[in-house]
């Protein structure tokens, strides 16, 4: 038993040519393929991460806007969801400065080769 508000879905009507979906699909596949290519570029981890992450955001954007049809939802909803999600995901990044210190400020004996390899052998 669900008491919905019986709202009509006022999003853009369905129907018409499914070609848009195919286009998005190929777009995502291409972006994903690029991710794999970047993995084998000779760049450092940070650069690779940023490139792949940017592609992932693009893919996610395509997914959200077209497959999940966020683009067809009304403006207040899009605004609300964007603010809430981005706020949380952004603020979550504030732990990074401490991540960099993990290595820099580790006790000297932890920095020897083979350190943090698990249970002491």
């Amino acid at each position: 038993m669900v008491l919905t508000n019986r709202q009509d879905d006022r999003g853009a009507p369905y129907g018409g040519n499914p070609g848009k979906y195919l286009l998005v699909y190929f777009g995502i596949l291409v972006l994903a393929g690029l991710q794999f290519a970047i993995a084998y570029q000779q760049v450092n981890v940070t650069a690779a991460l940023f490139r792949m992450f940017a592609l992932a955001i693009l893919e996610a954007g395509l997914m959200v806007v077209f497959f999940m049809r966020l683009g067809a939802e009304n403006r207040p909803f899009v605004t609300w969801i964007a603010i809430v999600t981005l706020l949380v995901l952004t603020i979550m990044q504030s732990s990074w400065p401490d991540s960099y210190r993990m290595e820099r400020d580790a006790p000297p004996n932890d920095r020897s080769p083979g350190y943090r390899t698990g249970p002491s052998q």
């Binding site: 732990s95 401490d98 991540s99 993990m102 580790a106 006790p107 004996n109 932890d110 350190y115 943090r116 390899t117 698990g118 249970p119 002491s120």
Partner: peptide, 21 residues
């Protein structure tokens, strides 16, 4: 749990984590 913790003179088998996390 980070590496090389010693509790009760026993070296703990954990390694690599972060308490600040």
């Amino acid at each position: 749990v980070p590496s090389n913790l010693v509790v009760n003179d026993q070296l703990q088998p954990h390694a690599g984590g972060s308490t600040l996390l």
